[in-house]
Each structure stands twice: as C-alpha cells, then as structure tokens.
Simulated scan of single mutants.
Amino acid sequence: MTSTKQKILSILRKNREVVSGEKLADTLGVSRTAIWKAIHELEKKGYRIEHFPNGYRYLTSDVLEKELISSKMLPASSIFIKKETGSTMDDAKVAALNQQISPALFIAEKQLGGHGRFGRPFFSPTGQIYMSLLLSPNQTFEELPQYTILAAVALSLAIDHYTGKQTQIKWVNDIYLEGKKICGILSEATSGFETGRINHVILGCGINFSIEPESFPDRLQAKAGSIFPKGNPPITRNQLIQLIWQYFFELLDGLPDKQYIEVYRKKSFVLGKTVQFNQQGNTYSGKATQITDTGELVVQTNQGVKTLSSGEISLKAIY
C-alpha cells in the first residue's frame, strides 16, 4: 500500500512546480498537518523540497530508490536497499543461501566491510554506489570471467553515456576515468559439488560517484578519482545504476555473440603496454599483447609467452 509520503513525492515529481499544501491535502484526503509531517519525513530521508508561502516544490534528489532503478529484468521486488551494511557481496551470499530468486540486486548507502580482489579493503565513503548482483546462470567455472568482463563493459559504457567522456578498463576489473580509478568489480561464484557447475554468480561493484579529490586519503589521492569530482552531479545514482544493469542484461542476452569482448579490448589501457606481475613466486614483466575471448591476458616476456588468468594474477605495474 502506497504511503502518504510516497503519494506526495509522486505528485511533486510530476508537477515540478509549486504545489500548495491545501491541494495536496485535498487530493490525498488528509489534513494539512499530515502533509507537513510527511514533507518533513521525506526531507529527513534526503529528499530536497523547497518551501514557499504558497506550497512546496520538488528538487532533484539523490536518494536511492528501487522504483527508479528497476527494469524488466530487475523488477523493484528484486532490488534490496540498505542504509548501511557490512558488504553487499555478503548480503547477496546470504540471499542465495535463502533461495532468493535471481537476478536480484543488493545496494547500500554505506558499506563497512567492503573488499576487492584478494580480500583487499577499499575506501567506502557514504553517498557513492555499492551494489552486488546475484545471478543463477548454471554455467561452468570456465565461463565465470565473462561475467566480470560483461559488467566492466556495461559500467564503462554507462559512465561514458552520462559524462560524454571515454572511460578505460584496466584488466580485468577496474574502470578508469582521466587516469584515475573510479570503480572496481569483484566476481565470485559457488557451485554444486556433484555437477561442477555454477549455482550462483555474484558481481560486486564499488563506484566512486562524486568525491572531491581532497577527500580521498593521502595514499589514494594520486590514483583514485570519481565520476563527478567537482560535485553537483547532473544525474542521480539511480539513473546510473539503472543504465548499468540495462546494458549488462542487453549484453548478456546477446551471448554467445562476442561483440562485448571487442569493446573490452578497445577500452583496455593495458594492451600494448609493459606490465609487471607475479606468478608462482616469480616476478615477470613484458608487453601485454592480447586479451583472449575468455578474458585472459597474454603477455610476451623474456621468459616466453605468459597467459594470465584474472582469478590468479594481479598486475603490479603498468608503464
């Protein structure tokens, strides 16, 4: 059942002009006091509403809302938003154990225990985008890297769309804008013991939406950035999240077509550069020459050609 707050929000959004408290009260069949209280509660949640002697006017507000993120593939009933969580990846794992119907999306305003590949912690200020998508693909483990690549391409294209700029992808799971990392992607999977096939895939994304450069810890200021570093983003997080997963499911529906891997290659800032990495206790460096159709990085070193798997290797340097 739609609450008075949601009804008021819907009316103000549709009008975009000043709407009197009297008109709101008459339309909804409640008192003027009830309208005032509902407006106050909306403001406490983060909605921006201008007050005038003759009524109220809605201002664009960046409050996460499942109804504004939802789509045909991700209905609002499959989107779960928390104000605070340890990790959206963990939320998705618990949901999988509880037989949550997938796909399902888990989002948090604040993440206390977020981590990247190999368990690395990361800077997680409030007001950015922390989300994990739960899928049930019933595929083999060899196909897991394609989900990371699909997510990276979808994220990159969505950010390009809203900024008019060209993002780049660092093999295998980081998105860069103007030389700085703005997003990391983490993929994990669980399988059936007997079948050896994937039961669930979870794609976690941490996106720096709008952070002023000086707000980053000193150790990150030279290499971390955000999509809108100057503040006052022209879009909301809801819009970006919605477009990311729209692109993702469009790419997923297009499989086994490999067009997405061509986009991934074109956006790579690793190909053609010298990279350094550790493998089986040894440090190697060489030229990154190719990304295979399954997402592996081929590097020509003095010790021969090395084919790197994203689940095993992390690049130490690119130059």
Rank of each mutant, 00 (worst) to 15 (best):
T163C: 11
I169Y: 03
S187I: 04
T163S: 09
W171Q: 04
V172R: 08
C183Q: 03
C183T: 12
I169P: 03
W171T: 03
H161K: 14
K170H: 10
V172E: 05
T167G: 07
Y176D: 07
G164W: 05
H161S: 13
K180M: 11
L177I: 09
D174T: 02
I185T: 02
T167P: 09
T163F: 05
T167Q: 09
N173P: 13
G164N: 04
I175K: 00
L177D: 01
Q166D: 15
Q168Y: 13
I169T: 08
E188H: 06
K181S: 12
G179A: 08
D160M: 10
I159G: 04
W171P: 05
Y162S: 09
T167C: 14
G179Y: 02
K165M: 15
Y162N: 09
T167H: 11
K180A: 10
K181Y: 13
G164Y: 03
D174N: 02
E178H: 14
I175D: 01
I159K: 01
K180C: 11
K165S: 13
T167I: 09
Y176H: 14
Q166G: 07
G179D: 10
I159M: 10
G184H: 00
W171S: 06
L177W: 08
G179V: 09
D160T: 12
G184C: 04
E178T: 12
T167V: 11
K180I: 13
T163N: 08
Q168E: 15
C183Y: 02
E178V: 14
I159L: 10
V172Q: 06
I169K: 04
K181Q: 02
T167W: 14
N173R: 07
I185R: 01
I175V: 11
V172T: 15
N173I: 08
E178R: 12
S187G: 09
K180H: 03
C183N: 01
K181L: 05
I169D: 02
C183G: 01
W171E: 02
C183A: 15
E188I: 15
G184F: 02
E178P: 08
D174C: 12
G184P: 07
T167M: 10
Q168G: 12
L177K: 05
S187H: 03
G179I: 15
V172S: 12
L186N: 03
Q166R: 15
D174S: 04
L177E: 06
L186D: 08
L177Y: 11
I175S: 05
H161G: 04
L186W: 07
E178K: 14
L177G: 01
E188W: 10
L186T: 06
Y162V: 15
G164A: 02
G179T: 13
Q168K: 09
Q168P: 07
N173F: 00
T167D: 12
H161D: 09
S187R: 00
L186M: 13
K165P: 10
Y162D: 04
Q168M: 15
C183V: 12
Y176T: 10
G179E: 08
V172C: 14
Q166P: 00
